[in-house]
Each structure stands twice: as C-alpha cells, then as structure tokens.
Nucleic acid binder design. Sequence first.
DNA 1: CCTTTCAGTGAACATCCGTACACTGAAACT
DNA 2: AGTTTCAGTGTACGGATGTTCACTGAAAGG
Lengths: 213, 213
Amino acid sequence: MRRVESTAAETRQQRKERTRQAILDAALELVAEEGLAALSLRQLTKAVGIVPTAFYRHFSSVDELGLALVDRSFASLRDMIRETRRGNPELSGVIRSSVAILVQHVHSDRTYYRFIARERFGGVPVVRRAIRHELELFERELATDLARLPHLDTWTAEDLRVMANLIVNAMVATAEDILDAPPERPEVEREIVRTAEKQLRLIVVGAANWRST
Amino acid sequence: MRRVESTAAETRQQRKERTRQAILDAALELVAEEGLAALSLRQLTKAVGIVPTAFYRHFSSVDELGLALVDRSFASLRDMIRETRRGNPELSGVIRSSVAILVQHVHSDRTYYRFIARERFGGVPVVRRAIRHELELFERELATDLARLPHLDTWTAEDLRVMANLIVNAMVATAEDILDAPPERPEVEREIVRTAEKQLRLIVVGAANWRST
DNA sequence: CCTTTCAGTGAACATCCGTACACTGAAACT
DNA sequence: AGTTTCAGTGTACGGATGTTCACTGAAAGG
C-alpha cells in the first residue's frame, strides 16, 4: 500500500487525479456556455477524451461534479481574500487595491468566477446552496476583517455582516460585469472599476457616519 | 377584417393570445426549476396541452420565448417602481415602504422575479443581454428619482447611476433571498427585510455624507 | 355560399441523451 | 510470480430531444 512508486513516469493515482482535473477543466469551459443544468455528460467526456461511462469512476453524479467545481472555484476566491489581507491597512488605498486584486483574479481565473456567478442563482439546487454557503463563510471572514477598521470597531456583529453582505453582492456583480466586458475595449472595464470603487467608497462613507443621523 | 366577432364565446385572436399566455405561464414554471437553457420544448408544450410543433405558431425559437418572458417580467417590475413612486416622499419612511412593496411584489409575482434572478447571469446570451438592458433602464429611472431627494440634487448624473446600480444589485439579491426563504418560517424573511432596510439606510447615509470626508 | 386563413394535429426522422453491462490491460499489491 | 485492483473501453438499450411535413377543421373574409 505505502510502496514508493516504481514507475518512472506516473503513478496510478497521479493519472487518475490528472483525469479528474481534466474533467473539472472541461466542465468549467462547457458550463460557461450553457450552465450546469444543460451540461451533457457525453460532450463533457468527449472534450476530456474519455468514454462517457468512465466519468463515473470520478464522480457519482453531475451534482457531485458541481460541488467539486464549487470547491475549486472558492479556493481561488480564498486566495484572493488572503492576498487582499496582505495589502496595506491604510483606508485610503485599500479600496483601490482591493478592486484591482479582484479584477486581476477575475481575469486569471475567469472560468471560476463565471461559474460562481452563473450557478449562484441559476444552478441546480444543491449547487446553489453550496455556493450560498461558501459566500456566507466569505462574508463572515470579510466581517471580521471589517471589524479591524478604525471606525467599525464598535459595530455589532450583525451590522458588520449586513455591510459585508452588501459589499460581497456589489463585488459579485462587478466580477460578472468584468466577465461580460468586451476585451477589445479596455475603457469599458475601466468604467466598471471606477463604478466599483465608488460604490465601495459610498459604503465606507455610510459606515463612517452610521447612526450619526 | 374589422368585423365585430360573431362568435359568442371567443374570437380566434383571443384564443391564440390565450394559448400564448399559457405558454408563457408554463415556461415560467418550468424555467424556475432548471433554467431556460435546459428548457425542453416537448415538456413545455405538454404542460400547456398542445403538440410540440404548435409552439412555432407563437414563437420562432426558444430565444424569442425568452425575450417575451423578459418583457412580461419587467412589466411587473415597472408596476412596482410606479407604486413605489406614489408613496410618501419623506425620507424616513421611504426605505421601509420601498422594501415592503418589493417583498409584496416578489410574493405575488414570484415566478417573474425568479426568472429574472435566474437568467440575469445564467441564461442564454441574448436573454441575459435583454435583462441587462432592462435593468439599465430601471437604474436610469431610479437615478432620476434619486435626484429629487434633498441631499442628492447636486450630484452628477454619473454618481447617481453608480448609486442606483448599487441599490438595484442589493434589491435583486434581496428578492432572490426572499424567493429562497422557507415559507414556513416567517422570521427568516423578517431578517432578510431587516438586512435590506439596513443596507439601503447605509447607502443613503453614505450618500448624505458624500465627498464630505 | 364558397374560399382563404391558420392554430393546432400527428406521424416520422435523425440525433442525442444517461446508464447498464461485460470487458481489458496495466499498475499495485502479496 | 501470481493475484487483485480499477481507470478506462465498447456495445447496446430505451427514451427524450428538436424539427420536418402534410393534414384537419373551424373561424374569418369575400
């Protein structure tokens, strides 16, 4: 069982994992066009280069595939928030840099964010619920980060969650806008970025003057 | 051509229109479960009670059906904004009443809002673009309404659009939350309403103190 | 009264779908 | 060396899919 692999090229587990990843990659491509509900097992396996029945060696159902895609996509999102956290904690630059990091991530992991945006409301129930749950965890993380900001350290946990929810919704919408922006017209994307920054600033200003009215 | 209908019961055009509406109704039901991309023409026509080919007497393609659904759904949304406009213009109560009207509309026209939320990001490209366009019009309307509010009459058109966009995104997310809330637990919905109200208030407070920081 | 229009019919089609089943062959283990 | 495991194969199936075409029959128009 715990033998060192004798084959020079590739062990069996490695091959399997490689096929699994190939399935996930192909699924992300196909889902981007028609959505998970309209995903055909046959064209998926054809894109991977395996026979339809071989799919079941890796996933017991399409729903399970969907959940794996949720995991994979949110791993990228967690990378993003980690990177954002490393940035400078000054309030002035944090908005610009956060949006910039978001844009960069959306571009490099385009298929992940397309998947999340697509299946968040549209997907199969079990996948939609999984995404919703992950976004909730994400909001909670964001809320604890927000609590460290100067004006917000006296806020209740609930108010922080409400604010985090608003921010996450705005950022998801921003991500989808960027995905839909024509690549040959960079000024459209600049406009989206400016809008996102203004919205974040509006929220922050609102937070700074909260309960003062 | 312009004869008064001689038949007592129903004229031919009326029958056709009735079938058309039945198709739209059935489509809204089916789309709620799996999305427009996974809609089957056969089960749709079976639900209506007509033969598959009869569908083409009303729509030349599924995409066209989708666009008709967009029209129909946004007609409901326009009713809503009209109703909201009629409300009292005092700032204090406008948030609570707006959210209340939203909730009421989402409940009575549940399938329309489900459709919009589902197909906004997830749908067939042409439908997604149509929804995006309608939401843009809606944002523009909202922006002109916002311009009449006390603190906002000096704002630039662009800033108003940015704010309207943020509000619309938050409200769409709220609508979907309400749709997903379990009907047997009204306290969940109350929580969603409270969150939506707080978010709107946060935005309004931000707007009131805009550029003052 | 005769003709036209046209919403809906019903059979037929080629194609794609998911999945069951027995299989192969090489890697992994004893 | 012999055995087991198992990722991937290949066939075959019953059923659902979208679209075609010629049709029916009642309402609308002349």
